[in-house]
Amino acid sequence: MEPQHKYILRKHRLDLSSNISTDDTIVQYLYQEEILTLDHVEEIQAQSSSKKRTLMLLDILPGRGPKAFGKFLEALEMEYPWVQEKLLQRLDNNAVQITGTDHWAVSESVLQSVPSERQLNRLAGRLGPEWESVLLDLGLSAEDVYRCRANHPLAVQSQVLAGLVLWKQRIGRRATVQSLVQSLQAAELHPSVLDQVFL
């Protein structure tokens, strides 16, 4: 899923959970279109209220591949066309802000480079409670994040650094500053978080 799509789902999750119900055809359509597995459907249906079921769906969707957002919009069109229209409008309004990296004051050459461990350490020291969602957005699993916390129980910076280093080791040359910036944007962090990081 594109960073701007993740951003829109995260930014409007409470609004969506109040305005749509997954008890209708949304979950079944996403299952039919192979966005959700049977396990996902059961996990969503096991939630105790309609709102919780919708929130669970919104938690699952970002990890379900590049077609997930489009299929979610198609599902909305069947039952909630006004919600779909509102989401598309918000996506248009936010597209430039989310995809542009100009205001992050990072040069093109730095964006294409792989960050050093020193740079990752500097960034780890700047991240607040959003660090877990940044790591999940980068592709680490909830189990990976738990392991980072368990291995460094007394130092949050060490937990974050361990996660960032693991991300870099896993995907090698594809672990660029650009993908890191996109995940920071998806977590709605302010550009100032990168001040002095990529000197």
Rank of each mutant, 00 (worst) to 15 (best):
N93P: 04
N93V: 01
N94T: 09
N94E: 07
N94C: 08
A95L: 14
V96C: 03
V96S: 01
Q97G: 15
I98Q: 07
T99Y: 08
G100I: 05
G100V: 02
G100M: 01
G100R: 01
T101V: 14
T101P: 12
H103N: 06
W104L: 02
W104H: 01
A105L: 15
S109P: 07
V110L: 06
V110N: 03
L111F: 11
L111K: 05
L111M: 14
Q112R: 02
S113P: 04
P115R: 05
S116N: 07
E117R: 05
R118A: 15
R118E: 12
Q119I: 00
Q119L: 05
Q119C: 04
L120P: 03
N121V: 11
N121I: 11
R122S: 15
A124L: 03
A124F: 01
R126D: 01
R126I: 12
G128T: 12
G128R: 03
G128N: 11
G128A: 11
P129L: 11
E130C: 14
E130N: 02
E130L: 12
E130G: 09
E130Y: 09
W131F: 14
E132C: 08
E132P: 04
E132L: 03
S133P: 11
V134R: 04
V134Y: 05
V134L: 12
L135P: 10
L136A: 14
L136K: 12
D137L: 12
L138Y: 01
L138G: 09
G139F: 03
L140I: 02
S141K: 07
S141P: 00
V145Y: 01
V145K: 09
V145G: 08
Y146R: 15
Y146K: 15
Y146M: 15
Y146T: 15
C148W: 08
C148Q: 06
R149D: 06
R149I: 10
A150T: 13
A150Y: 15
N151H: 10
H152T: 06
L154Q: 07
L154P: 05
V156N: 06
Q157T: 13
Q159Y: 00
L161S: 03
A162N: 13
G163E: 05
L164I: 00
V165Q: 12
L166C: 15
L166T: 11
L166M: 13
W167S: 09
W167M: 03
W167C: 08
